[in-house]
């Protein structure tokens, strides 16, 4: 039995490395982003990608879809986009006999990988339609509920610069995203590589390395990784440290944070930690796995207060301080 699990772990690691290597054939750098996207996929989460235009947000998502043998859809969010445009709608259909009946026409959300490009440009009503589907993994139109095909993985992007005419996602909806990943501007060396790859006659193309079943098996494997109570306690104390007005609150939290991370955030730490443990050939979650998940899992889950906003405090700074100051053990 243990040998079987050991093989399972080895297979998991190998497949992950293959996927990553294949993505890197197209995407230059961005290791953390690719890891984050894949960890979210394997932990049954969704990702919000944030970055300035033109740094490859959409390219990363498209490449991930290419590498995985999954159905991929893309929705460009605009202010006039309606919920029906995403989830689909009942349309009148005429049969060969001339009878008319309503048929449900599936929207682009019925896919495995959905790229919600510039999600903050759609109205809250439309955003809600997507975010509800993300959480429930089903769509209800009329009286009928339609299950979304597993795996259902949403990669949403948003541009932090152009705030004019946008509808920022409310905190409750941000909480639905497993990770918020920030794509930074590439380094000069990476820029050279990007130029070399993308300005030739033939651009590199990623090949498929994982199919749907393999992904689902990897998801199950990740969830089997056990976590000891002391490590889980550490994850909980990290979460509580983001809550102002509690005994565990960090001083920076008390000063700059209005609301801390939810229990869903703690789930993110643990699930992400499990995947990270497997990637490091461990059969247990370590505190460092939890710590590694802290920034992408919590940066969109803590709500700054007036003082924090006024002083333009980066949530990442608060989280780094919490990581530094919260001890692994309470002894």
């Amino acid at each position: 039995m243990t040998t079987e699990i050991a093989n399972q772990i080895e297979q998991f690691t190998d497949q992950f490395k293959q996927v990553k290597a294949e993505i890197h054939r197209v995407i230059v750098g961005n290791d953390e982003i690719i890891d984050g996207v894949l960890i979210s996929l394997l932990a049954k989460g969704h990702v919000l990608l944030e970055g300035i235009p033109g740094i490859g947000k959409t390219k990363i998502v498209a490449t991930v879809a290419d590498v995985l043998q999954l159905v991929f859809s893309r929705i460009q969010f605009t202010p006039d986009l309606m919920p029906g445009d995403i989830v689909g709608s009942d349309v009148v259909h005429e049969s060969d006999t001339g009878e008319k009946h309503l048929d449900f026409q599936k929207g682009p959300i019925f896919t495995n990988i959905l790229l919600a490009d510039e999600i903050n440009r759609a109205t809250p009503k439309t955003q809600s339609a997507l975010l509800e589907a993300m959480q429930e993994r089903s769509v209800t139109v009329g009286n009928e509920t339609h299950r979304l095909p597993p795996p259902f993985f949403v990669l949403a992007t948003q541009n932090p610069l152009e705030m004019e005419g946008t509808y920022p996602l409310p905190e409750a909806q941000l909480d639905r995203f497993f990770y918020k990943l920030r794509i930074m501007y590439p380094q000069p060396d990476d820029m050279h590589e990007i130029m070399d790859r993308t300005t030739r006659r033939e651009e590199p193309v990623a090949t498929t390395v994982l199919n749907q079943d393999q992904i689902l098996l990897m998801r199950d494997t990740a969830r089997d990784v056990p976590i000891a109570r002391p490590v889980q306690d550490y994850a909980i104390r990290l979460t509580l440290a983001t809550h102002p007005g509690t005994p565990h609150a960090h001083p920076m939290t008390e000063k700059y944070v209005r609301f801390g991370a939810s229990p869903r955030g703690t789930q993110t730490l643990v699930l992400g930690g499990k995947v990270n443990a497997l990637l490091n050939d461990r059969v247990h979650v370590a505190c460092e796995d939890v710590r590694a998940m802290m920034l992408p899992a919590f940066r969109h889950r803590i709500l700054m207060n007036f003082e924090g906003e006024a002083e333009r405090i980066d949530p990442d700074d608060i989280l780094r301080a919490i990581i530094k100051d919260v001890p692994e053990s309470t002894e």
Binding site: E4, A6, D224, V225, P226, A228, V285, A286
Partner: peptide, 24 residues
């Protein structure tokens, strides 16, 4: 050791049947 012994010591006190914990 990345919390390997700490986790193992805690798992030693647990009951039940889990191949993952046995492997750990």
């Amino acid at each position: 050791l990345h919390d390997e012994l700490k986790t193992a010591y805690w798992f030693m006190g647990l009951g039940g049947d889990s191949a993952w914990i046995d492997l750990q």
